[in-house]
């Protein structure tokens, strides 16, 4: 994880059009922890949601042939069940609920040591890539995450 750059995933462990598994390690140090909270670092809940969003967003992108950029537009039934300190190894999991036309709905969860610590239903709108360079960057980035497994 590189929290300052919103790069939440370290590896894609497995991925199909219907399901994805990812891994991410909460860093030992980050400027985020200087404020959240001084002397008591905890992963912000919104970043746990972002970790679910990037896990499933990757699957949605791949399931649509990398032809569209998925943008998070809905978070439903989100539950953050456990505080997450630095050095925690997070296993992300996502399942395609519905790959619609121009949108997708997924179920996501995060797990630590086999225990579910967060879950939500996420909705994405799928837009055309605003620039070819961004599409190429994301394809390469995802290839790197798959190689890191």
């Amino acid at each position: 994880m590189r929290l300052e750059y919103f790069q939440m995933l370290d590896a894609i462990v497995a991925m199909s059009d219907e399901e994805i598994r990812t891994r991410a390690v909460v860093p030992d140090e980050s400027t985020v922890f200087e404020g959240h909270f001084p002397g008591h670092p905890l992963m912000p809940g919104v970043l746990l949601i972002e970790t679910m969003a990037q896990t499933c967003g990757t699957m949605v992108m791949a399931a649509n042939g990398y032809e569209r950029l998925p943008l998070l537009v809905g978070v439903k039934d989100a539950k953050l069940r456990q505080f997450v300190p630095p050095r925690t190894v997070i296993e992300g999991h996502g399942r395609m609920e519905h790959n619609g036309s121009g949108y997708a709905v997924v179920k996501a969860d995060l797990n630590v040591d086999g225990k579910r610590i967060a879950n939500a239903q996420l909705t994405y709108t799928l837009i055309k890539w605003p620039a070819p360079d961004l599409q190429a960057f994301m394809v390469e980035h995802i290839a790197g995450l798959r190689a890191a497994a």
């Binding site: 036309s101 121009g102 949108y103 709905v105």
Partner: peptide
Amino acid sequence: VFAVDKAFGIKIPHE
């Protein structure tokens, strides 16, 4: 659209 897709087993070509 999501709820309609699910209810009718279709994929509305929303895009």
